[in-house]
Amino acid sequence: MTNLKILLTIIGTLAVYTLVANIIPQVQSAVPREIVLTAETTPEELVAIGEELYAGVGGCTACHGLGTRAPDLVGVAGSVCETRVPGQDCKTYLWESLVNPTAYVVEGFQPIMLDQSRTIVQPQLWALVAFLQDQGGTVTVNADDFASALAEDTAPETAPADAAPVDPASIDPVAVARNTGCFACHMYSGEGVELGPPFEEAVGKDPEYIRRAIEDPGADIAEGYESVAGLMAPGLAGIMSPAELDALIQFLVTGDPGGGDDGDDGSGDGSGE
């Protein structure tokens, strides 16, 4: 009898621990694979690639699926996409949601999403559209969409020859931060979300440290923010012009918004372009 009680104690303890570990959210670390997109890629392959981007380097799950920051998409995106904007088909709506996300903002959410074409190449954006359509809907992304995107994406990017140098002092850094989506995770003067360090904590820091934090967010993790490390997308610096980046860094390390306006009324129109 004693031996049985001992056995039951051990098995019972193991059962409780196993149960607890099984009822919490389950996240598996998948193996990243090489993503190759060609004009011959099938819709099924596109969906699979899109899913990988969605859950991985696309960084979509940093906001979507958490409940408050952005709508849940998995399982529903494909079924609601046609109902959002009258006269707009699902594919067009999803494409626009990625490349011009503020054109339509779902009720109850803030316009914090960035233009994804600035960080993800077009063929891969189509893969994302295919994945989202597959969430309760029908995939209509076809080879034509995809092939033209491939051709477009391989075209060399050329800077306008006559682009005039911009004076950083004339740029409103708060507007730059707003347009770049910084306030989706950082707070400044009561605006934004308290997820990453507030802007006020950057005052007095080494400008090079701040530059690195923007250009390569994984390089240094601010103490106390280890649990949200990895959420910030690399490549945000690429969304800004060099002058805007300089102005933003200057503002962060000095705390002085200076620039084109008083920092309270950024236009939010993507003036960095």
Binding site: V27, Q28, S29, G218, I221, E226, S227, V228, A229, G230
Partner: peptide, 8 residues
């Protein structure tokens, strides 16, 4: 470190 503390 991020994988350990803030990742999956």
């Amino acid at each position: 470190g991020i994988t350990m503390m803030g990742g999956f």
